[in-house]
Design a protein around this nucleic acid. Structure first.
Length: 341
DNA sequence: CGGTACAA
DNA sequence: TTGTACCGG
């Protein structure tokens, strides 16, 4: 679930116009999780092709990113998680247990006929397997967007792409890219602007928000290293936080004492022994430096074969997505030519 | 989630 | 213009 920085951040609402013409480094599987959670029928069942393979993520990716490209002239680099960092194993185990519990509860609620509650469990049980990752990569490439593989966490690689100027901001629901030093983070990059709150059985209206690392740090008078120390106190994917310490207390302590090393021993003794290793994951993560970023026109034949022949999409719908992607590509290409001339 | 159609 | 209902694979 990443790090909870919510109480420390004052995002600026930028709306969809705020990403016009921008290149976003998308945490691809973060986006896929949202689609798997929400692109479902009224019983909470995922969409599938005739072989029973999940297609909900393909529906979501096509409609969202083709329209953002077409209507807002945005473009995307899709960044994928690599092998999980060894220190993340405990967190992954925890999530797996949560999913399994939710799956069971889903089946029970469904057999009792409680469709609304069943749906909320289906959302928690969303799971990304290898086939979903591979089909996502295949679709993104056919759409003409570059795919970048991270060594471990996609958020680290996406942050690096923004630091290098290859993308304007990271697009993700999670905060972690800021800890990896991304200068900008865009949250809630959706078209309809709704977030489903399973606990409340309600949807809340949201518009895209921008968080600037510089403003976050200067606003609190801290350094990136200190922000990472705050995260370690609160808890990250790589360590349990100190009990009773939330984001606000952590900020106060790090501002007062400067760093984890200087905390009073009463707090410091609750830190994990390997906190320096966790700090280095964020400050100095292994990166893929040999990525290639080629933006191509959409592959019409490839998309038809993949979506219509293999995944039972209606050809009429696929043509709509294709037209958007073609128009968006031509417009960006034209803009670039003008810029170079 | 996102698209569409139709109501008030 | 906003709400609501239904569909997509």
């Amino acid at each position: 679930m990443g790090v909870n920085l919510t109480p420390l951040v004052k995002p600026k609402k930028i709306g969809l116009q705020g990403v016009r013409g921008r290149v976003l480094a998308v945490d691809a599987l973060n986006s896929v999780y949202q689609f798997l959670a929400l692109v479902r029928d009224e019983r909470g069942m995922l969409f599938t092709n005739s072989r029973g393979e999940v297609t909900s993520h393909l529906i979501g990716l096509l409609s969202r990113y083709s329209r953002l490209a077409y209507e807002y002239d945005a473009s995307f680099i899709f960044v994928f998680d690599g092998s999980p960092h060894p220190l993340k194993a405990r967190e992954l185990e925890k999530r797996k247990k949560q999913r399994e519990k939710a799956k069971q509860e889903y089946a029970e609620l469904l057999s009792k006929g409680d469709l609304r509650k069943a749906f909320s469990k289906a959302v928690v049980s969303a799971e990304v397997d290898d086939r979903i990752v591979e089909s996502t990569k295949r679709l993104v490439r056919l759409m003409g967007f570059p795919v970048v593989d991270a060594v471990h966490d996609a958020e680290a690689q996406a942050a690096y792409l923004v630091k290098r100027g290859e993308a304007w901001a990271v697009s993700s629901m999670d905060w972690d890219s800021l800890l990896y030093g991304s200068p900008r983070l865009v949250r809630y990059l959706t078209l309809t602007g709704f977030e489903w709150l399973p606990s409340k059985q309600k949807a809340r209206k949201l518009i895209p928000e921008l968080v600037t690392l510089e403003e976050l740090l200067s606003g609190h008078g801290i350094t990136l290293r200190q922000l990472v120390d705050i995260a370690i106190l609160v808890g990250t994917d790589y360590n349990e936080g100190v009990k009773g310490v939330g984001p606000l207390r952590a900020l106060k302590m790090i501002k007062r004492y400067g760093s984890l090393e200087n905390l009073p021993v009463s707090v410091r003794r609750h830190l994990p022994e390997n906190y320096e290793a966790v700090r280095q994951i964020f400050l100095n993560p292994p990166l893929n430096e040999k990525y290639s970023l080629s933006f191509s026109p959409p592959d019409k034949e490839g998309l038809m074969k993949f979506l219509v022949d293999e995944n039972d999409f209606s050809p009429k719908r696929v043509e709509v997505y294709l037209r958007r992607l073609e128009a968006a590509y031509e417009r960006r290409k034209g803009g670039l030519t003008r810029f170079l001339a």
